[in-house]
């Protein structure tokens, strides 16, 4: 009954170079504007704040001056074997067959939050209240992503709407919609990052940057031992950062290259 790891022709994935992230939050700002995430009066309670893309500050656990810090942006991992999809009672979320993006159909969602309880990455967010755009902020709503009412779960979709729009653009220009260039479909966070820390593309397409990067000896994924097979890879040349990507017993070695494509 446990979900199988699904393989598709395309596999949209992300590679985040942690050695280049300054934690500035430009990606988070872009994400919100792109996806019509409603603002909140107070977002200091991070357990109630909608951050489809959340930036963690990691520590190597040592004292000053040996201490080292790294910022880790965490979008939805778009797991190959998602914890959330199997558990949804109403099929409001599914592993998309067109690139393996885990969708969230908010009009179907009944808000039981079982998917949130299942996700070890906390990538899912519940609309505790109705969204509110004070003043004229609703004027800035993008037509590409629907607004969500209270009582439903939402999450990062790898800006799936951009993929749909890119395909339509290709059709309108008599091009093959399934053979678009890497640059035609980029997530909002990836294109925004001033440091170029976020790469996005088809993990299976050798022409795409993420394909090679995901096979780097410095690549790792979060909580890989759970078997979720995330489609988001992280890169760091620092061993302690890679080790923080998963739970290890003290006597276990880490830092081995991961090749699981």
């Amino acid at each position: 009954m446990a979900g199988e790891i699904k393989e598709f022709e395309r596999k949209w994935g992300m590679v985040i170079d942690l050695d280049k992230c300054t934690g500035c939050g430009a990606c988070v700002m872009s994400c919100q504007a792109e996806n019509n995430v409603a603002p909140q009066d107070d977002a200091t309670n991070k357990l109630r704040a909608h951050t489809w893309l959340f930036i963690y500050r990691l520590s190597n656990g040592k004292q000053y001056p040996e201490h080292s810090t790294v910022y880790l942006p965490r979008p939805c991992m778009q797991c190959g074997k998602p914890t959330c999809v199997e558990v949804c009672p109403v099929i409001a979320t599914e592993k998309g067959e067109d690139g393996g993006i885990v969708s969230q159909v908010t009009p179907r969602c009944i808000g039981c939050r079982y998917c949130m309880a299942s996700c070890p990455y906390h990538a899912r967010y519940f609309n505790w209240f109705d969204p509110h755009w004070p003043g004229d902020l609703a004027e800035a709503l993008s037509p590409d992503v629907s607004t969500r009412p209270r009582g439903v779960v939402e999450k990062c979709t790898f800006c799936h709407h951009r993929w749909m729009l890119a395909k339509d653009k290709a059709i309108a220009n008599n091009e093959d919609p399934l053979a678009i260039a890497e640059s035609e479909y980029q997530t909002s966070c990836a294109e925004t990052c001033p440091n170029g820390a976020i790469y996005f593309g088809d993990l299976k397409n050798p022409d795409h940057k993420v394909h090679q990067l995901s096979q780097s000896p410095f690549a790792f994924r979060l909580l890989e031992r759970l078997g979720t097979e995330p489609q988001v890879y992280y890169l760091s040349k620092r061993e302690w950062v890679r080790r923080l990507g998963d739970n290890y017993l003290d006597d276990e070695k880490t830092g081995q290259p991961l090749r699981k494509l």
Binding site: T93, G96, D98, S103, V105, S146, H160, H161
Partner: peptide, 12 residues
């Protein structure tokens, strides 16, 4: 057609 029945093909 190369259509799919994935949710996000029709839902945004």
């Amino acid at each position: 057609t190369r259509a799919t029945n994935a949710c996000a093909v029709c839902h945004k």
